[in-house]
């Protein structure tokens, strides 16, 4: 039995310990904001926060999360999160939107650890998050904007 919290709510799981957290979230908890893009850690669509750090939920086994607190796109509440979401809206970042939960989780992770990132730091931190619609220019701009909003 693995116990953990998702967005502050307690969960317990008793199935395959090698099932990725991604599928627990999507199929068992029916929280589908976290997306399946590649299943192999190459796209970042499945990014969630594990004890505050962005991780790829497709590469995180259920056995790895005992006692952890998970935050998903549905549970974003922090100041950095609100700033990121507002900046995304202002700058019309989304296109198809399928990668954007992961982009936002990764961006929040960046701004929490580095509230005023250089452009090169943004590029490096976000490089693992693919967007097939190529919204990168706006993501980069929105992170800069979110950084400003956080200061206000």
């Amino acid at each position: 039995m693995t116990k953990f919290t998702i967005n502050g709510t307690e969960h317990a799981f008793e199935g395959d310990p090698y099932m990725p957290l991604l599928w627990y979230l999507r199929d068992f908890a029916q929280m589908t904001g976290t997306k399946f893009g590649c299943g192999v850690g190459s796209c970042g669509a499945c990014t969630v926060h594990l004890d505050g750090e962005p991780v790829r939920s497709c590469q995180t086994f259920m056995s790895d999360i005992e006692g952890s607190s998970i935050t998903t796109i549905e549970g974003l509440e922090s100041k950095a999160s609100k700033a990121v979401q507002q900046a995304w809206d202002e700058m019309n970042v989304v296109q198809c939107g399928y990668c954007q939960s992961g982009q936002i989780m990764q961006a929040v992770g960046l701004l929490v650890s580095n509230p005023k990132p250089e452009l090169s730091e943004i590029d490096e931190y976000m490089a693992g998050n693919a967007c097939r619609c190529a919204t990168y220019q706006r993501i980069r701009g929105a992170i800069v904007r979110a950084s400003e909003l956080m200061e206000a």
Binding site: T32, G33, T72, E74, N92, V93, G97, Y98, Q100
Partner: peptide, 17 residues
């Protein structure tokens, strides 16, 4: 502002998947 942003930034937008 785009009409489809909010669901796509808060996880509620529903794709086929």
């Amino acid at each position: 502002r785009r009409r489809d942003t909010s669901g796509k930034i808060n996880g509620t937008a529903q794709f086929g998947m």
